[in-house]
Design a protein around this nucleic acid. Structure first.
Lengths: 258, 258
DNA sequence: AGGTATCTTAGGTATGACCAAAACATCAGG
DNA sequence: CCTGATGTTTTGGTCATACCTAAGATACCT
């Protein structure tokens, strides 16, 4: 392979050029628009020029312009609406896009539930700590609300799981760290989805969870960061262990395939 | 607003229809393909049918098919190559997509460096704990390598930061939890970018970091999970504090415009 | 055999036409 | 004057076709 850079033996110029990137036109446009949006040139809610205007401005074809816009839409930077007052509305990326990206990673990589729970064990106690420090009264109200709802034992499994997620997200929100909140929302949703078909959630589990939530909520209310961390750690850890047990049990059971 | 559901008083049928969603054709296709890919119908590396085939199969226009493919590409599910042996290559989403999505969130929401560091304080000690438990010899080798490189004090700021990131990512990798690793890679990269222009990284900071890394690496080597957590917590916390101090100092200093 | 021109397959871009959604303008009837 | 039905206009969504470009495959010529 030493001849890779050999210069031509004929009379041609031996000028060397690195392999050049020929980006696609739509990517170029998308990058340009993305930078401008992120730079704040278009405040949230404003609309980009109509496609046909972009066409005449950029001298690109409408196909290309549309592809660029589609890219930005997938990335959560704009939302496109049809109709007269429609257009490409600038929209700062929210946790939604992070969550969906995470969801893809999880499904695509077949990440196991135990990994999700492990990750939650890393993130959530810290959330609780910050929440105890930074919570506002509204945060508390959200927590209490979720607590109230979760203690109504009627309700389907889906109801329980949703309320459960609500509470956990409320804790994250109370931390007033947007990034951490984003992680937790994405994680919670994924755990929800992965737990949906697990059979280990009985009335007992629900009661235990409700009790733990109350207790942690109290710590957050009292701004007792230490207690919040400790209790949250125990809560998520015991939950993880419960799941693990079921998984192991099911690993022994012969899977009733379909 | 009570008249919203009023039935027509003329002879027309009063059949009620809920507001219907009219998804875009390209989204429909994209969803379909995404599900199939995630379901494993196309193993990694295989190529989807050529665009023109998809057109004839789906009876959609090429524009639509291409938009759908573009969506999947942005989501990291396929990689499109031009040329004869080209096509849409199936590609399981990796941490890359998560990282870029996170990066958008951070830039778009103007998430501050302190939030990033806070989040790291949540995630990384746990990484260290898992690493101490699950590390293999290759993991150790990677850590040692990063350590060696970071101790060569020559090198630009960028070199230092990159090596720093390498080490932290190596710790995450050693945890053998793909999700956690993904988080840390994304986070590290963001912190790198946000730190690049900060002036507080001097030789002293570098030495301190190198020492801490060595020490934590030893704990991981010895499979001493407790020590790994403790030391990592201290390390990232003190780093965060150092940054905070600089930020506060600079908040007092009059910003030198532009 | 070795290099070069050409073929062929696939994606990338450009046009132009037309469809569909949604706000807005208009006008008839109570 | 209000109401409601009916265009009208703006803007995105889709389609069809043609042509350009990348790049592996192949034949061909020396």
């Amino acid at each position: 392979m030493t001849s890779a850079a050999g210069k031509p033996s004929n009379g041609r110029s031996s000028m060397r050029l690195d392999p050049m990137e020929v980006p696609k036109a739509s990517d170029v446009l998308a990058n340009e628009l993305r930078e401008r949006i992120l730079a704040g040139e278009f405040p949230e809610g404003t609309v980009l020029p109509p496609e046909r205007d972009l066409v005449s401005q950029t001298k690109m074809s409408r196909t290309t312009v549309r592809e660029a816009l589609r890219i930005l839409e997938v990335q959560g930077l704009i939302k496109i609406k049809a109709g007269r007052a429609g257009g490409a509305f600038v929209h700062r990326p929210d946790r939604e896009s992070l969550a969906s990206s995470l969801s893809l990673l999880i499904r695509g990589r077949q990440i196991r539930l135990t990994s999700l729970l492990e990750t939650r064990e890393a993130v959530e106690p810290f959330c609780a700590e910050l929440a105890a420090r930074n919570r506002t009264d509204e945060d508390l109200a959200a927590l209490d609300d979720a607590n109230d709802r979760i203690e109504k034992e009627e309700g389907t499994l889906a109801d329980f799981l949703q309320t459960n997620v609500d509470w956990h997200v409320a804790v994250a929100t109370a931390s007033h760290n947007e990034l951490l909140t984003g992680f937790m929302m994405a994680l919670s949703r994924a755990i929800y989805a992965a737990t949906e078909n697990e059979g280990f959630i009985n009335a007992d589990v629900r009661r235990t969870a409700a009790r733990a939530h109350r207790s942690i909520t109290k710590a957050i209310r009292d701004r007792d960061a230490d207690a919040a961390v400790r209790k949250m750690r125990r809560h998520v850890h015991s939950y993880a262990e419960a799941v693990l047990k079921v998984e192991q049990r099911e690993a022994i059971t012969v899977p009733n395939g379909d």
